[in-house]
Design a protein around this nucleic acid. Sequence first.
DNA 1: AATAAAAAAGGGGTTTTTCCTATATAAATA
DNA 2: TATTTATATAGGAAAAACCCCTTTTTTATT
Lengths: 214, 214
Amino acid sequence: MTNYSVVVVDDHTLLSQAIQTMVNTFEKFEVLYTCKNGQELVNQFSGSPENIPDIVLMDINMPILNGIETTEWIQKNHPIVNVMALSVEDDDKTVLKMLKAGAIGYLLKDTEKSVLEKALIEIAENGFYHSKNVTNLLMKSISGNGDEEIVLKEKEIIFLKLACTELTYKEIADRMCLSPKTIDGYRNNLFIKLNVKNRVGLVMYAIKNKIYTP
Amino acid sequence: MTNYSVVVVDDHTLLSQAIQTMVNTFEKFEVLYTCKNGQELVNQFSGSPENIPDIVLMDINMPILNGIETTEWIQKNHPIVNVMALSVEDDDKTVLKMLKAGAIGYLLKDTEKSVLEKALIEIAENGFYHSKNVTNLLMKSISGNGDEEIVLKEKEIIFLKLACTELTYKEIADRMCLSPKTIDGYRNNLFIKLNVKNRVGLVMYAIKNKIYTP
DNA sequence: AATAAAAAAGGGGTTTTTCCTATATAAATA
DNA sequence: TATTTATATAGGAAAAACCCCTTTTTTATT
């Protein structure tokens, strides 16, 4: 009987290699290769059918092509592959996005070796795994709470980024080649849209949603 | 000939266990145990002399007792132990603090397995290791740039945290049981002290220095 | 106790932000 | 083309943020 093949994707090379070493100690599992980001994975997958594993262990925060985008790509092009998210993130929105993108499991990086093995076995044999946290989260997400995904337009994002600097709205207007009054509008729209009270609220939203990185 | 003993400290259990597995594959090295935070390490060290390793691989961001504090403790109580920092952080201040605390090396988590092994060997045999990044940083830090460590008092920190919320300065004053005018003073002092122009500057400083976590 | 230093508070002013309402203009659509 | 619809812009005003300078109160120091 052949082993299940695994690919590890994480921009922290040491982590991905360490996990590789670890997974290789598991009976039944074997790491094919590791990737530093989503782009590398896409290249590998597109290279040869032999590069397509049974399971992908995927970090979320990565440069170039992040975990969510990459999972979407896999879901579209190789729907048989099981993606398990592996992240330090545990904020609700991120988890939900990852699951929506098609991940069939979600594991925090502060779990035990044994838990990872158990999760891999479940995925390989049953096709799913969910930690307690995630199960609770899913319950919450289903019951009520439509969540109304907020979509920002390009200019709003640019504005938001500038609002995270020490620039004055007047100066932001100059940078964006718009009248201060227009900026006034952007700001007020976002106050309502993002449900915040003032500029600090904008800044916090931008940071939490990775629109601006301090 | 006996192996060099290593202890891995990281709050991400999966990472510390994965690194444990990896280090155990290195000839000459052997992991004694892993810890989830500094407190655990202190307990282990204080438990039995057999628990004291040659090398500690230490993460920086940890709850309870962080990497810098833990390194200081080790430096004070077990100065023979070599601490190597292992972190995703690469901002100058953090690295310098870690080195000042007594770490003899600094490795980013996105390095290769082979680099880790090489670093461990250097530490074990020569007693030091520095990645290129760190060497450059040290050069910068020595040449000129006194850096003037900014020290904030307790109340300034409380104020700074509140300034990161959507509260009005008036409301912050209430929370801190101070007059709005006093808050005015705190704000203006911090503007000068932190070299920022407005509230966004305060927020950014607080976040960058982990005084406030979004 | 006298003096110095730090923390808290106030007076009063300018600028920026925030808010509300209304209009011109461009872009998309029936 | 006429009609929405989204985007950009104004006017005006109240609130909050920002700034400078002075005074009181507390705390520490010799």
